[in-house]
Nucleic acid binder design. Sequence first.
DNA 1: CCGTTCTCGGACACCTGTGTCAACGTTGCG
DNA 2: CGCAACGTTGACACAGGTGTCCGAGAACGG
Lengths: 197, 197
Amino acid sequence: MQTLGTTGAAGAKRADARKNIAAIIEAATASLARDPNVSVNDIAKAAGVGRVTLYGHFDSRAALIREVVDRAIHDTDAELNGLDLEGDPRDALARLLEATWRLTHRYGSLIVAAEAALAPEDIHDAHVQPMTRMRGLIERGQASGAFRSDLPIAWLVEVAHSTVHGAADALHRGDITEAQAPTLITETVLAVLTPSH
Amino acid sequence: MQTLGTTGAAGAKRADARKNIAAIIEAATASLARDPNVSVNDIAKAAGVGRVTLYGHFDSRAALIREVVDRAIHDTDAELNGLDLEGDPRDALARLLEATWRLTHRYGSLIVAAEAALAPEDIHDAHVQPMTRMRGLIERGQASGAFRSDLPIAWLVEVAHSTVHGAADALHRGDITEAQAPTLITETVLAVLTPSH
DNA sequence: CCGTTCTCGGACACCTGTGTCAACGTTGCG
DNA sequence: CGCAACGTTGACACAGGTGTCCGAGAACGG
């Protein structure tokens, strides 16, 4: 058992087993996105299987979260790598922000769950990966004079992320609608990044 | 026992009892600001008393948190009410942001603890109170033309808060220093609020 | 100085969540 | 078919946190 590790390669398992594994991962992703402290029991119930069945496929709660996070990182990378980050930095940033928002909205508080359950080393990648992408784009915009350079680059990246995060909170609270979120985020971040004159 | 409820009025108690209560509240505030999931045991140890002594003064973990939160709200209100919010809206906003930052930094993740332990009704006040202050100031600035009016007011308030929150994260991560935080926050929020032309 | 008040520590019951086991179904393949 | 391999299940053991009770002892305040 436990033939699938962090690689996630489901080999020659029985058909129903593979179906259950998929259901568990899907349910875990959705549940953890909502509440980072969901119990394994709730995740199993959401997947339509028994709790012990889940333990038959994943060694521990941490192993399950690791698998979910790995998939999230993989999907995120795939989605973000398919993005066109060339051209006008402002337009590129808008595209990157829109994608980041979509992913944040999908995975929600998964990162919180990961931080609580996984070792710091495992978290590092999840944070650094999208960070450097945003950072690189902002640096390119600074070099071309499209973005302001009088604030620390790390801070500008942080602003982009907190704005996206804040939009998620505001949406959850009902202050804004899902439709207007991307516009508000882009408008806001660009307002910060635009040089005074 | 338990003569102090949410009012927090310590009456004619014994001197050491009052001292211990104060130590407990102080330790709980500091502990919860760091980790919203601290156990009652750890809080008691941090206060230098036994766990049972703590239960002698507070009916439950929730009651303790409620007391801590009430004090935090009270102190916050006092500090914010002492602020001069008149004059140039930009300067007033800078003052309000600076105070908000200081308080956020002091109380840290206390709100998270409150959200997990208290009923939604009890949380409402903690959120709404500082919200309306910021909102009123922004509205005044909008009326005088100092701030942009093309974005929803609720979103602008959210931006101010997520920027402060983001600064706390960046500081915790070591991306910025405590000294530059107020400047960065003010600079950023003003960049968003300043009309395009 | 003495009674009241408070602290302290251990022990207990209870709850929730995690992880494991052996027995019970079910699937898949010859 | 039929059997062996595998997945699934309820039941069990364990750990950590909360809240309570008790008795012994210390400190306060009159």
